[in-house]
Nucleic acid binder design. Sequence first.
DNA 1: GCCTAGCCCATTTTT
DNA 2: TGGGCTAGGC
Length: 743
Amino acid sequence: MDLLAGLNDQQSAAVIHDGGPLLVVAGAGSGKTRVLTHRIAHLIHERGVSPYEILAITFTNKAADEMRERVGRLVGDRFVGLSREEDGTARVRRWGGMWVATFHSACSRLLRQEAHRLGYDNRFTIYDSSDSTRLVGICINDLGIDPKKITPRGAAAAISRAKNELIDFDAFALRARKDGTWYDRQVAEIYRAYQGRLHRASAFDFDDLLVKTVELFELFGDALDHWRQRFRYVLVDEWQDTNHAQYELVRLLCWEHRNLSVVGDSDQSIYGFRGADIRNILDFELDFPDATRVTLDRNYRSTQTILDAANAVIAHNLQRIPKHLWTDVGAGAPIVSYTGENEHDEAAFVAEETARLAEQGEFSPGDCAVFYRTNAQSRLLEEVLVRLGMPYQVVGGTRFYDRAEIKDLLAYLRVIVNPADDVSARRILNVPRRGIGARTEAALDLFAGQERIPFLEACRRVEETQLAARAVGAVSGFVQLIDDLRAAVDTGELSLREIVELVWTRTRYLAELEAERTVEALGRVENVRELATVADEFAARQPDATLPELLESIALVSEQDQLGEGAPRLVLMTMHNAKGLEFPVVFMVGMEDSVFPHHLTLGDPGALEEERRLCYVAMTRAQQRLYLTRAWHRTLFGATNANPPSRFLREVPAELVQDRSGDSGGPSRRGLAKAGARSQYQRDDDTDDGDLLVGDWILHPRFGTGQILELSGQPGSEEAVIRFDESGTKRLALAYAPLVKMW
DNA sequence: GCCTAGCCCATTTTT
DNA sequence: TGGGCTAGGC
């Protein structure tokens, strides 16, 4: 097998590189995944490296699965821990072959073997961000700090930032005392309390997975030696988005053997806000002076037009390694710009254009993707798509696993696995309602703190508290329930699905929901049942899977992981979520200053550069067609604004762009008509402002919808009194007011 | 202890 | 826009 077949010179160089650190600067669409997979295959095949010695880090679980499959195809499934069924479906053997994982899942896996050394249970729980925010809130409460002055969210974010920098609470406190604000000193206290709570609960938050692994390596030389020898070859994808903790982890693992390959693109660093440190890539060669650099700038994805546009935009950034993408596939179609009257019009354009492409047989809706800056923008896109009957899928937004009912059930499962998990125990203490209120909970927590025991243990000893008999009875019932569930699970006779079902039956969770008989409750019932399906699917992929493993995989799923399930349809997602993906047709909507770039970044040059990188990432997802759309007027969070065109739009050379705003009879006519059409969309070109009558409903771009109460004046200078739904009653001159009749 | 109404608030991106 | 939270009533 020729692993270099079809690769260009730079790619080949990266694949066969031997000896010392390797930095692959890989522009968007330059085939970096190919380089990584072929490099791994090369190591195994040509250099006799055991797959067992390889650690490959990817950005999402989905990317990890893909890489495992691709390497498997090159060198054989058994090397990568895959086994294949007769029908071709892949199954993952748990400890098989090489590790392909995200930072977080790799650390989690490693800590499952090592956590006890750090004083944690190997069956630790992983807290997601909402769990940690909750716990921070509890700590704020404990310390008697006013949660209005320091919000749980704010404090949690500050703590997370510190952890990303490997600053523990002592160091944090020291710094806060020296030259910190009052806020910092309070956070230092919260940080300490929070970490104590985590430890007592045998729980790690996302950041701890990294921090504690680093700590393990620093404290236990034998552990470091062991894992260092185990992973003699380390490859990291998306290096530009690593934070300091991740960097340190990699440095510790690789410092001696130096078999480190990192692949990244400083222009695609878009996670600075959560601690990703762009210097990790910019300074790589300072930290590893013996590193070899290979630059991949030949793009295999997009047309030259799209690349020219993206290159032009990113060239405005100062913090970067200069690089210029090129391709030989030709110029392709021009970039299309469109300005709608308002956001409804803009959305309608996207939907219509997708439909038009499909009608012409050029691209199916499944080839198209819509990217927006914030999740809030997805709703009205969805409205329009529903109205037009265009099938679509939203990636991200409210995650399945963030729904209250799912978190409730998961909390039961987590308590079964890890009885010390206080956040989960407290979450379900009174869910479903069993008459245990805030006072009882507080008393139990106090008792737990005094006795230095987990919350559930405090519940078990509820009789030692001063609580009233009724509360004691209710709490005992709760403990009994948990004990019963754990006993049933511990028999080892239940499948994952049966465990999930047991929880919702024994707790009467499902029954209570069904009894509500509301539409919302019905949706929740479906979600709850869906969790059993998740359990089944997990068991199918990994036949010997255990409950802790199921919980771990759920804790570490990412947004992109849901992509591509079901029939192909138009995909909606944030630009961040688009990273690493590609689509024949891409719409970028909301190209307005203060939407994108986001208004919070406008005054901050560094943040603005990150926005520009985000723009670059989004643009370079497009293979053949790129649409950049905006609206003259946009209503967001109830307020209507007229935003100037995005500066990124102005950075695209005009000759690459074709403006389609003039399509179909002028923007205002088109847009307003669309906003008005409620149940059935129709192009409303024959609406004539002159035909207005008292009682008509109209739409004004600034004031919204309203009803005409009164008409007066001579033809040519008529006035109307209009009662707007949102903006009150106004008298407007018809000759000037841009009114459009709705129905 | 529970429920609801009304308030208030903020409002980016997420492993 | 709505979602999360508190205060007040049962």
